[in-house]
Simulated assay, not measured.
Amino acid sequence: MHTTPLTPELLRGALDWENTAHGLLPHRLPARARTQCADPQLAMAESQPSGVRLVFRTRATTVELDTLPTKRVYVGVPPRPDGVYDLLVDGRLTGSGRVEGGNTLTIDMTTGSFEHRAGPVGTLRFTGLPDTVKDVEIWLPHNETTELVALRTDAPVEPVADRGRKVWLHHGSSISHGSDAASPTTTWPALAAAQGGVELINLGLGGSALLDPFTARTLRDTPADLISVKLGINLVNADLMRLRAFGPAVHGFLDTVRDGHPNTPLLVVSPILCPIHEDTPGPSAPDFSSLQEGRLRFRAAGDPAETAGGKLTLNVIRKELARIVRERAAEDRNLHYLDGRDLYGEADSAELPLPDDLHPDAAAHRRMGERFAARAFAPGGLFADGAV
């Protein structure tokens, strides 16, 4: 077997990487951004490699990848399944696998505490690949921090040159991150990118789409042909901001992105339907009665009457985002708005309700990916050639 050094040249979808005691740890935010916020939720989210994949060309029929995953365990909730690795050969899904072992991060939702325990490196193995020169992609688990330890193949490996496809840079919340999707290639952004024929950089950051300036600067400084930002739900979840601050913060976020991408098509997407927060402010809180039943659900802990004092709901946010984009678009012909309920709305909620009252399930991710691709990448779509 050939052992190939794991280097950044083999990575797609990561904006930074870290050499650890075990190997290579991909990051989705650059080091400067990471140093500007000590929030453990953000640190966990950005190190989970949603949209990150190893890409190489080889004639190998057997591929082995050693990794050290970090798996989340929620106190009082049944164990989550191990993260999924998807194998694509020449762009086609060919296999999937999981890695046993790894570190564990135990989270107590009742206290907000975290406990980290070290565990062993595990091995992912794919066999029976075609005995031809081919492009191989291994998509890393979207919901497990993953240190890459060793890559072994039964034929040499080389990096894949730029395929000339447009780069789509997307930022959003845990829904964009892929929470409750079945696998890394079936998060809604990954599905939409595949249908649109674009290279995805996914900055969906669970719990962390909070209009942070360092995130805006990351978008500003990342080369991209198409950019979308899905804003709103995390601001309600965290009860972080009032209406007075929200509008100027959105303007500032978009101004920063435009500093680096003055003419790039830029799409602002408002929240999908989330019944608990349509007209009720945050914060979101765990439903402890559901924890006692061994499942995790959320509730809206705010009071609808508080919107009069400037608290944010999803309907308030959608109205404000639509106004901001409409006014800015008078001078920015490459700025667009998409109501998130066009991706998942009331009819979808009746058919495919949010299992935990916040996050879409695997079937809803597929529907959202198809709808986004149709609205953004199809002929005449917001990101189609010639669209302004």
Score class of each variant (00 low, 15 high):
S176Y: 06
G369W: 05
E9M: 05
G112L: 10
L124K: 07
R318Y: 02
A249V: 07
D239P: 01
L273S: 13
S228L: 03
D162M: 01
S289I: 05
A308N: 10
N103H: 12
W168D: 03
L140P: 00
L200N: 06
V55M: 12
P304R: 13
D225R: 11
V268K: 11
T218M: 09
E158N: 04
V325F: 02
L6P: 00
D131K: 04
I227A: 09
D16N: 09
V75Q: 13
L54N: 02
P78N: 14
L88Q: 08
M1W: 11
L25K: 07
L338G: 00
T307R: 14
P81D: 13
D90N: 15
F288D: 07
G13M: 05
L235S: 05
L211I: 05
T222K: 09
R59S: 11
H2R: 10
N202D: 10
G164L: 04
D361A: 14
D239W: 10
T3H: 11
A31R: 15
G196T: 07
V198I: 02
E144N: 06
V52A: 01
T256P: 01
I138L: 15
I324V: 04
Y344S: 09
N237D: 04
R341D: 15
L343N: 10
P248S: 11
A155W: 04
D385I: 02
A285H: 15
G310E: 09
V325S: 02
G119S: 09
W17A: 13
D385L: 11
P30G: 12
R244S: 08
H277R: 04
Y85D: 01
M44W: 15
I272M: 15
R57N: 01
L231F: 02
L354E: 05
L267E: 03
G128Y: 08
V268E: 12
P223Y: 11
T3P: 00
A45F: 09
K166P: 08
A33S: 13
G172H: 05
L87D: 05
D66P: 01
V160W: 00
A224S: 05
G119F: 08
S96K: 15
L140D: 02
H336A: 15
P286M: 13
S289W: 06
L129S: 04
A376T: 07
T3K: 06
T67G: 00
A31G: 12
L219T: 08
S50G: 14
G197M: 12
T186N: 14
G112H: 11
P78V: 12
T58F: 00
G294P: 04
R80L: 14
T185R: 13
A350Y: 13
G23H: 09
R165C: 01
M1T: 08
D385Q: 14
W188V: 00
R371M: 04
D348R: 07
G112V: 08
R323N: 04
T70S: 07
A347Q: 13
N103G: 02
T187A: 03
E331I: 08
V157W: 07
N19H: 14
R367L: 14
S208Q: 15
F377C: 03
S173V: 01
V52Q: 08
R217V: 03
D385P: 04
L105I: 03
P8I: 04
L151W: 08
H22P: 00
D303C: 02
D16L: 05
H170D: 14
S96C: 12
P271L: 10
T61N: 10
Y337P: 02
D332R: 15
P283H: 05
E147I: 03
P156A: 14
R57G: 02
R244L: 10
V229L: 09
